[in-house]
């Protein structure tokens, strides 16, 4: 039975990676938020399944926390932000999507190889998925690099945190509760600050294109 559950976790890990790629290739901000929400759902399922496999009840708590935060609260906040900023249907031109995806594949290979020696140190049943978690982190970072608008960058940051969270769950059955709560709070505060920040950029430049920030540097 635990074999099947493990298979389930692996499947969820693959889904997480797939969603990270989808976010990398997505042009619309609204769809990005939907993808982020889906990533949250997958993360909740993975954490709960991990809790079931490893008999670690605190993982259920952390799954519940993720559910509340990443599936409901943050997407809701993001929806409000894009409604207020009126960037709901914004379409962003990216640098050539196929190129991004090919670089993404190379990153995945890199992450998988990097994770192999680390995962051998871990005692977790799902240590194989560590490489995927690392790949998600790198892909999210890359997404932050390739975007020129502020909201997708924030989403990239949040996706990066998702990857880290999954890495922690996969390698060590999650972080201690205190740390986890702390990070959850951090993310929440972070997004609030970023929200304020976004409104400020908008007021200043009448646009959310962060290339405008380049003007701020001292000549």
């Amino acid at each position: 039975m635990s074999g099947l559950a493990l298979q389930f976790i692996n499947l969820l890990a693959a889904l997480l990676l797939l969603l990270a790629f989808a976010m990398l290739a997505q042009r619309r901000i609204l769809s990005l938020i939907h993808l982020y929400t889906m990533q949250g759902v997958v993360l909740v399922a993975a954490t709960a399944a991990m809790g079931y496999v490893s008999h670690q009840p605190h993982l259920y708590v952390s799954a519940g926390l993720t559910l509340a935060l990443k599936v409901f609260l943050i997407p809701w906040l993001l929806h409000r932000v894009i409604d207020r900023l009126n960037v709901r249907w914004d379409i962003e031109t990216l640098i050539n999507i196929p190129t991004t995806l090919i670089v993404g594949i190379v990153l995945v290979i890199f992450a998988f190889n990097l994770a192999q020696p680390i995962s051998e140190l871990s005692a977790s049943v799902a240590r194989g998925t560590l490489g995927i978690a690392l790949a998600c982190v790198l892909l999210s970072l890359m997404m932050m690099i390739t975007r020129s608008k502020a909201v997708p960058q924030v989403i990239g940051f949040l996706a990066l945190e998702n990857g880290l969270f999954f890495a922690a769950t996969a390698a060590t059955y999650g972080m201690p509760m205190v740390v986890e709560l702390g990070i959850a709070l951090d993310v929440l505060v972070g997004i609030l600050i970023l929200g304020v920040f976004l409104f400020q950029i908008r007021q200043q430049f009448d646009s959310l294109d962060i290339r405008h920030l380049e003007k701020l540097k001292d000549e």
């Binding site: 594949i105 194989g128 490489g131």
Partner: peptide, 11 residues
Amino acid sequence: VIAMLVNLLLG
């Protein structure tokens, strides 16, 4: 390609 990589990673 990802399918193949995941297969190589997860065994």
